[in-house]
Design a protein around this nucleic acid. Structure first.
Length: 535
DNA sequence: TGCAAGTTGTAGAT
DNA sequence: ATCTACAACTTGCA
């Protein structure tokens, strides 16, 4: 059997290939667990993205000869899987991904592997979610610390050799019809369910039971969609690829100015290796000299890989501040007022149109540009509201269709000046930042339509518009659109800089004290990452 | 110990 | 478009 997890695709799926060898029937299974079912963890848009990816996988499996389609089960993998392999007399299980840095997933991997061994079920496990397998990084680290900056990671990456070429999707997957149907009946019996099909978009009962609204997606899920997008944004435009400079792309284009392949990479609808080689090929085909990491498109793939090594090789939970060896300890606010401001930030009711537009796009479409993430992350944390990045992490994790535990954690630490980046005096202005690339405020007009009639002069700061202008725009500030939750961004951000400085000073002092105590013994330096012991 | 570098700030000058 | 001041962070390497 093939247990699909985070590689929802047929192309470049080495575990699927391993499952096919010596098997006369492959049973593909997806388990929707409790965590993903809960709307507080996974929002409706992100959920629908997963469902669409599953429907497309189901379709492609059927086309490849799996008459039963994808077996869809709700439950916990550790409980469901043993029942399936008992009922269907499974000899081997493959799961596509045991390299997820998230601690929760790693525990499930270990539990399932152990259960399978006990039940005499062979386990296939081929790395599929990284460009190089984590074990190779560990080897090439050769006992050294995991790099915490991009140049260090580039060195490590280059020591790992070439990224393996992606393998093609199988044209035919073995499925002996009688045997397959018998197995499926036995599974239904054992799990006491009537149906093992992936719920359709039209299945109202399913959505009602899940306590979810059905959503139309701007970026639809699925392997077909992923490959279509890869072709459009990378394979078909090598010159654009070679010229790509991430910091120069606008956060507020009406059409995304970046590739938007991250949701497909993250869900495994698209293979990282496939994307890497597509980018490299495009760079070669282009006339000019391609841009280089970290700003190039290849660089973007390296960033993700970099954050994955950080997540993987850090024992502690990096999505939290306390006990996190990477994160500066900062006394963020969390009183009643801070909670209220946080909620307004989340709902896109800060009274700062650019911030509110971004948060609205996030909620409605599940994707926002990287620099838009910077804007709202800075605003929530060190810039204006002074609420912990952990709260922002949770919101992004729920709403983003490309929500990725390690990447999300590391970027929130970055933006809040908790790790990797420390120039807290560089602060995004909710008024100035968006103006640079969208002076007319078209992006705001789209996502905060109540403001759409304001003249460009006031669209980023409508509270400055005189009464008659507000009336003419049919939008009174404080009535039709909220007042600013932070009266004075400039003054507040200055105060907050001082608070960060205080936290840094305290950190420095504590480090000096610790070093003083340890005089004579080797200091390992705060924040260094210990190498994970292979268990 | 000193200095350069760090994907992606702002405001104001030229 | 490219410069500077702002006030000055940390890490890595020589």
């Amino acid at each position: 059997m093939m247990w699909f997890r985070k590689s929802l695709r047929l192309h470049d799926n080495p575990t699927l290939k391993a499952c096919m060898e010596n098997a006369d029937t492959v049973l593909p299974v997806f388990i929707l667990d409790k965590w993903h079912s809960n709307p507080q963890n996974v929002g409706d848009v992100r959920f629908e993205f997963i469902m669409q990816s599953l429907r497309n996988l189901d379709e492609n499996l059927r086309k490849s000869g799996i008459k039963s389609g994808l077996i869809f089960v709700r439950g916990e993998p550790e409980k469901v899987l043993p029942k399936i392999w008992d009922a269907a007399e499974i000899k081997a299980i493959g799961f596509d991904d045991s390299e997820e840095p998230e601690k929760h997933c790693r525990q499930i991997d270990e539990d399932v592997t152990e259960l399978a061994h006990k039940a005499n079920v062979e386990v296939h496990n081929e790395p599929a979610h990284w460009m190089h397998p984590p074990g190779l990084y560990e080897q090439r680290l050769n006992g050294g610390d995991v790099p915490t900056n991009m140049s260090g990671f580039e060195t490590l990456f280059s020591r790992c050799g070439d990224v393996r070429k992606p393998i093609d999707a199988p044209s035919k997957i073995p499925f002996a019809e009688d045997e397959g149907r018998k197995a499926i009946d036995a599974i239904k019996d054992k799990l006491k369910v009537k149906d093992l099909q992936v719920p359709k978009e039209s299945d109202e009962t399913f959505y009602k039971n899940m306590n979810r609204e059905r959503r139309k997606l701007r970026f639809p899920g699925g392997e077909d969609e992923a490959l279509k997008r890869l072709k459009k944004v990378i394979e078909d435009q090598p010159e654009w690829v070679a010229k790509f400079e991430k910091p120069k792309t606008a956060p507020n284009g009406i059409e995304p100015q970046t590739t938007v392949i991250s949701p497909y990479l993250n869900s495994g609808c698209l293979s990282f290796r496939r994307a890497w080689h597509a980018v490299k090929k495009a760079e070669k085909e282009a006339k000019g000299k391609p841009t280089q990491p970290p700003i190039s498109l290849a660089g973007q793939l390296l960033w993700r890989e970099h954050w994955y090594t950080i997540g993987w090789f850090t024992d502690e939970d990096i999505s939290k501040m306390r006990g996190n060896p990477l994160a500066r300890q900062i006394p963020w606010d969390w009183d009643d007022q801070a909670k209220e401001l946080f909620e307004k930030w989340e709902k896109g009711q800060t009274g700062y149109p650019f911030v509110d537009a971004i948060m609205t796009q996030l909620r409605e479409e599940g994707w926002i540009h990287h620099l838009a993430r910077h804007m709202v992350a800075c605003f929530l944390t060190r810039g204006d509201i002074f609420v912990s990045w952990e709260k922002g992490f949770e919101v992004f994790d729920r709403l983003l269709i490309d929500a990725d535990w390690s990447v999300n954690s590391c970027n929130w630490m970055w933006l809040s000046c908790s790790a990797f980046f420390y120039q807290y005096f560089r602060c995004y202005s909710p008024i100035a930042f968006g103006k640079k690339t969208d002076a007319n405020g078209d992006y705001i007009r789209k996502y905060v339509p109540v403001l759409k009639n304001f003249p460009a002069k006031y669209i980023y700061e409508p509270w400055k518009a005189p009464q008659d202008v507000q009336e003419k725009a049919k939008c009174i500030i404080g009535k039709d659109y909220p007042d600013r939750i932070i009266e004075d961004h400039t003054a507040t951000s200055k105060e907050n800089m001082n608070r960060i400085k205080e936290a840094y000073d305290k950190h420095k002092q504590e480090q000096q004290e610790a070093n003083g105590k340890k005089r004579g013994s080797k200091t390992s330096g705060g924040g260094s990452i210990k190498k994970k012991q292979k268990s």
